[in-house]
Design a protein around this nucleic acid. Structure first.
Length: 491
RNA sequence: GGCCCUGUCGUCUAGCCUGGUCCAGGACACAGGAUUUUCAUUCCUGCAACACGGGUUCAAAUCCCGUCGGGGCUGCCA
């Protein structure tokens, strides 16, 4: 099943219809097309399939474009099917003139009845149209109709194509029926528009979701009727929800922009999506990873993905979308962000989630070590509000589990008395003084000292080391918070 | 119902084409432990799969057949 892929001829496309926000599945298909094109140094086309005027919306098209750009998936050419109606018209007319297509006047009710009948007889539902015999080239004006491709329902032919991922796929022609190709001479339907565009745009490989397998024999028939050459196909496994059905809204976030809003990095999304149904050959990546100590093994950047990509290694079966792995992956990329990029990535989320009065760049730099260990996604910064604003909490929280209110008060008073502004400039000094208090006054129970301080500074029972917090807050702010806690205890 | 695709740990996967090196490897998740003032990090350990049944073979996760399971499509949507 190894097809020789001719390098210079590779041209692929991603063809979303703007009837919804960019779906993660579409984004992955776009990515695989992009990787394939880049790997073979071929062309990549973005084609908006908006022939369904009823359902297509500009905002969805904008979302798709924005999403792909965010991921860094760049296209060489851009088309919109609604602007190419003249082209389709030409081919529809040709088919009609040659008697390969015809007008069908069956009502939707009649079609439905035919289908029910066939299902009752345990046959494959398809429309076998009697208007085909008369082969009318132009429409009878008084009737409502549609244009269909004439397909011989008595043919014994097996339509087959070589799928780069699945091998030979076969389909009996007689199961196809007289398929619809256009609503009228000016209004193409999906299958016709795809075939014409793939031909006109010189597409070499059609890489799309598995849900299009059943469209492929139809498109092959249209190609043949039009005299076009066959294309190469690769049908990718679907992305599945936790119940193993096609990933959809009921499984949670599915639109790419939602992930951006939650603070997933595009590099992480790319890496994660690439590994859904594909993985580089073991020996190949293992050698490179060995050379970079400490590097996580599933982490690949775009260039590496392009370099290693091999369509033949794509899986046949669907892959479940595992948000936990994505979270881990995203954290890996957050850690890898250089300071400047970390700042520009996090600050918008700080502003949105916490709304502090201001955020200094050097402050973000200071808290970076605290954050990168704890953020799965950037919106998680909301848990660190106390870094930007004085915390609110109940005074009972100040009490260490082995102590009581007086113990908390005593600890904070000692801290307040012992820590000078000058001391606060040095982390080690702070730590030494705290330990001193613990040893001298609390029999070495450091929790008795650290706990009340932690709560005074953060208002939380779980937080980074309070010593680290003092090194991050201004000296003044640290003392204000300690005194505020004391005031609470005294009230 | 019909047709098509598909089946390795909970999940993503390596291995399968070219049978032995696989009592099946890695990652995520999960569990336990170490460090520790809490959380996180880090480190260590553990748990856990070739869907099932036949066949071919000295030998099968790997080849063949069947069964069962899962998914997709079945539009005058794309």
């Amino acid at each position: 099943m190894y097809n020789l892929i001719m390098v210079k001829d590779v041209r692929v496309r991603i063809a979303p219809s703007p009837t919804g926000f960019l779906h993660i599945g579409t984004a992955r298909t776009a990515l695989f097309n992009f990787l394939f094109a880049q790997h073979y140094k071929g062309g990549f086309v973005l084609r908006i399939e908006d022939t369904d005027l009823e359902r297509s919306e500009k905002k969805y098209e904008e979302d798709i474009i924005e999403g792909l750009q965010w991921l860094g998936i760049e296209w060489d050419e851009f088309y919109r099917q609604s602007e190419r109606l003249d082209i389709y018209k030409k081919y529809i007319q040709k088919l009609l003139d040659e008697g390969k297509a015809f007008w069908c006047y069956h009502s939707i009710e009649e079609l439905e009845a035919e289908k029910q009948e066939q299902m009752k007889r345990k046959e494959a539902p398809r429309h076998i149209c009697e208007y085909k015999v008369k082969s009318q080239k132009s429409k009878v004006k008084s009737k409502e109709g549609i244009i269909r491709l004439a397909v011989d329902e008595n043919s014994t032919r097996i339509i087959s194509f070589e799928d780069l991922i699945r091998g030979t796929v076969e389909w009996e022609q007689k199961l196809v029926g007289d398929l619809s190709i256009a609503k009228d001479e000016n209004t193409p339907l999906y299958n016709l528009a795809v075939v014409v565009d793939d031909y006109e745009m010189k597409i070499s490989h059609v890489i799309r979701g598995e849900d299009h397998i059943s469209n492929t024999p139809k498109q092959i028939l249209i190609q043949e009727a039009l005299g076009f050459n066959a294309l190469e196909y690769a049908h990718m496994p679907l992305i599945l929800g936790i119940d193993r059905s096609k990933l959809s809204k009921r499984h949670g976030a599915t639109s790419l922009i939602e992930f951006r809003e939650q603070g997933y990095l595009p590099e992480a999304m790319i890496n994660f999506m690439a590994l859904l149904g594909w993985k580089p050959k073991h020996e190949t990546w293992n050698i490179e990873h060995e050379a970079q100590k400490g590097r996580q093994e599933d982490v690949f950047n775009l260039d590496e993905l392009v370099h290693h990509f091999d369509i033949h290694r794509v899986h046949k079966s669907g892959a479940v979308f595992d948000i936990k792995k994505l979270n881990w992956m995203n954290n890996q990329y957050i850690r890898g962000l250089p300071s400047e990029q970390f700042e520009s990535a996090v600050v918008p989320f700080v502003l949105r989630e916490i709304q502090p009065e201001k955020v200094e760049d050097d402050f973000v730099e200071k808290i970076k070590p605290i954050l990168i260990e704890r953020l799965e996604k950037l919106s998680d910064v909301k848990e660190f509000e106390y870094l930007f604003k004085a915390p609110e909490y109940d005074k009972s929280l100040l009490v260490w589990r082995k102590s009581d209110l007086n113990g908390a008060k005593k600890a904070l008073e000692l801290i307040n008395g012992k820590l000078s502004l000058e001391d606060l400039e040095n982390k080690d000094t702070v730590k030494n003084k705290l330990d001193e208090i613990a040893n001298q006054e609390f029999g070495g129970d450091r929790g008795a000292v650290y706990w009340p301080l932690r709560v005074a500074l953060t208002g939380k029972e779980k937080s980074p080391d309070p010593v680290v917090i003092t090194s991050v807050l201004t000296k003044e702010q640290t003392l204000i918070r300690i005194n505020h806690a004391l005031k609470k205890l005294n009230s």
